[in-house]
Amino acid sequence: MENNNDVLRSIRYALDLPDAAIGEMVRLAGGEVAADLIPALLKKEDEAGFVECDDELLVAFLDGLIITRRGPSDTPPAPIKRLTNNIILKKIRIAFELKEDDLHDIIKLAGFQISKPELSAVFRNPDSKNYRVCGDQLLRYFLKGLSQRLRG
């Protein structure tokens, strides 16, 4: 996506999370974020005091979201070399326990059309011949639809 801050902001809005909950989720996953840094991470790029959310922090937040919503896992998550939209979408899918139909409905709710085979290709192994890169537009529509679904 354009930046990790957009993902953080979108999930925070969808779940109506206070700043303290964001910090707690990061800590649950073994990360660290200063409480006074969270408001700066939630600002838009053109706002004064904006601080960029790096991949490590977003991964910790998403892993913490999974732990918060589903409980701790017996196996720690695999380390991520490079955060991609596909990984972000996978982690959100896990956190909210979304099935393929749920994902399709959420994206459709935001006004975007994608076939089920195209969507399932986003979740394939990158080595698969049917793998498809999740573009910024698809992730943006998914996050928009998720907010609409959760907030009504």
Rank of each mutant, 00 (worst) to 15 (best):
D36R: 15
F61W: 09
F123Y: 13
L103N: 01
D105V: 09
L150P: 00
D55W: 03
A60K: 12
E32P: 00
L150S: 01
F142I: 06
N86V: 10
R27C: 05
A48S: 13
L146K: 04
I106A: 03
A21C: 04
P39D: 06
E2W: 09
R93F: 07
E24R: 13
K81D: 12
A20M: 07
E2H: 12
F112L: 14
D74H: 08
L143F: 02
L57I: 13
E32T: 13
P77K: 09
L42W: 07
I106M: 07
G49S: 04
E24N: 10
S10A: 15
I11V: 15
M25Y: 11
D105K: 15
A20K: 12
F96K: 05
G152H: 11
D55H: 08
I66S: 03
K129Q: 10
G111D: 10
P72S: 13
R132M: 08
G135Y: 08
N130M: 12
D74K: 09
D101A: 14
G23Y: 08
I66D: 00
D127Y: 04
D101E: 15
E97P: 00
I92L: 15
G64M: 05
L143M: 09
L143V: 02
L58N: 00
L146Q: 04
A14Q: 06
K91D: 01
L57C: 06
V59P: 00
L42Y: 07
E52P: 00
G71A: 04
R9F: 05
A60Q: 06
K81H: 11
G30C: 11
S147I: 02
D54A: 05
L62V: 10
D46E: 13
Y13D: 09
L37H: 12
D74Y: 07
P39S: 06
K116P: 03
G64D: 01
L138P: 02
D36W: 14
V133L: 15
G49A: 05
P77I: 05
G111L: 11
C134W: 01
P79A: 09
D101Y: 08
F50E: 00
L143H: 00
S120H: 08
D19W: 07
L109F: 09
Y131F: 15
A14T: 07
E24L: 11
R149H: 12
F50I: 04
L58V: 06
A14F: 07
I87R: 09
E56T: 14
L83K: 03
I114N: 02
K99N: 12
I94P: 00
R140G: 01
L42I: 09
A110M: 06
I38N: 02
S73Q: 15
F112A: 14
R27S: 11
L42D: 07
I88F: 03
G31F: 10
D19Q: 14
R69Y: 04
L150N: 02
N125F: 06
R9I: 11
D16V: 10
A14N: 07
F50V: 02
D136Q: 08
I92S: 03
A78R: 15
